[in-house]
């Protein structure tokens, strides 16, 4: 029974992946391509935030670090003329290196203190981009970030990235998202994920079974920042302009809302959250002014009535149905 369920799940996930992989066959409208490209980027950022949450601390520096990835990658491409394909991995390394300095002072703290201390250092980093015009461009940010170089596979024409078609971007970001999710999922199932769970449940006990709590916390935070940097780099090279205000705490809150409303307990939670909110935004386009209002109400409702997030809804419903059955019998 359990095995069949698992198989069903695998088939379902594969079907979803194939469906979205074939999306450009059905619609090539630049508008919808844009919506989905951004959605895939948000999924990378949100899923990596949830990965850091598995060890019990909420980082509020996640979005500034995503920005760091974007800035690093853009500057490498603009000042050193590196191709996107080289700049992205370098930006990931640079971001992870900077994340050490953002998170290291925060490590002795936990809970609310960690959350706001990480905000503080992330914000100082973000304000550096505003303040130092050279090289960060000040409040106006960076313009004309080069698009990724063409992908040349022998035998087929080179795949060019440019303003003409969004399809190459769509597939690039889609593949990056799938790989990121796969790696994050595997990490969570691995020993690292188990250690994260132990650290979250009891910092103290974890130490006394021999876990180096600080080291593992740092490793998890750095992995999270690396994936945030991938999201940031994709964002920068896709939109071709980034500004410090893009990575203001407002976006951090949105990412947190996606995670919380989707559910932090389950790997799929943040994915569900991003889907829901991005599609909701499109549905509400005629009354776009009220979108934040709807977001706020959904958030408040979820926190009060469904604290484990939307992903726990099927579980809750079946538990409720079971209870009813028992009551009826």
């Amino acid at each position: 029974m359990k095995r069949r369920n698992l198989l069903g799940k695998k088939v379902g996930i594969a079907a979803v992946i194939v469906a979205f992989g074939l999306l450009p066959v059905f619609t090539q409208s630049p508008y919808w391509m844009h919506v989905f490209i951004l959605m895939w980027i948000y999924i990378i950022v949100t899923a990596s935030l949830r990965f850091t949450i598995t060890m019990g601390e909420w980082s509020f520096a996640h979005v500034p670090l995503m920005g760091m990835g974007g800035y690093a990658s853009a500057l490498l491409a603009m000042k050193l003329g590196l191709s996107f394909w080289v700049a992205l991995p370098l930006a990931v390394l640079i971001t992870a290196f900077i994340a050490v300095f953002v998170y290291l002072p925060c490590l002795p703290t936990t809970g609310t203190f960690f959350f706001f201390a990480s905000y503080a250092f992330g914000e100082v980093m973000r304000l550096c981009w505003v303040r130092f015009k050279n090289p960060f461009g000040g409040p106006a940010g960076l313009l004309f970030i080069p698009a990724p170089g063409p992908i040349r596979i022998p035998g087929i024409p080179a795949i060019e990235f440019g303003p003409l078609s969004k399809i190459p971007y769509y597939y690039t970001v889609f593949v990056f998202m799938l790989l990121s999710l796969l790696i994050l999922y595997r990490l969570e199932q691995s020993r690292l994920g188990r250690i994260a769970e132990a650290v979250k449940e009891s910092n103290l006990l974890a130490q006394f079974v021999g876990i180096r709590v600080w080291r593992y916390k740092m490793v998890i935070l750095l992995i999270g920042s690396a994936f945030a940097a991938i999201g940031g780099s994709l964002y920068a090279h896709y939109t071709t302009l980034i500004m410090p205000v893009d990575f203001y705490w407002g976006l951090g809150i949105y990412i947190i809302i996606y995670t919380v409303v989707g559910g932090t307990r389950h790997f799929g939670g943040p994915i569900v959250g991003v889907f829901l909110f991005v599609l909701l935004r499109e549905l509400l386009r005629p009354i776009v002014m009220y979108v934040p209002l709807v977001y706020g109400l959904i958030l408040a409702g979820t926190l009060v009535f469904l604290p484990e997030g939307l992903i726990s809804l099927p579980e809750k419903i079946s538990a409720w149905a079971m209870k009813k059955k028992i009551a009826a019998a």
Binding site: W58, G111, T112, F115, I253, I256, I257, V260, M289, Y290, P292, L293, Y295, G296, L297, L299, A300, L303, P307
Partner: peptide, 17 residues
């Protein structure tokens, strides 16, 4: 603490709009 903070940011949206 953190849930109330997140809740209050939701209220920011509501009141601002």
């Amino acid at each position: 603490h953190i849930p109330s903070f997140i809740m209050s940011t939701g209220l920011i949206f509501v009141l601002q709009v």
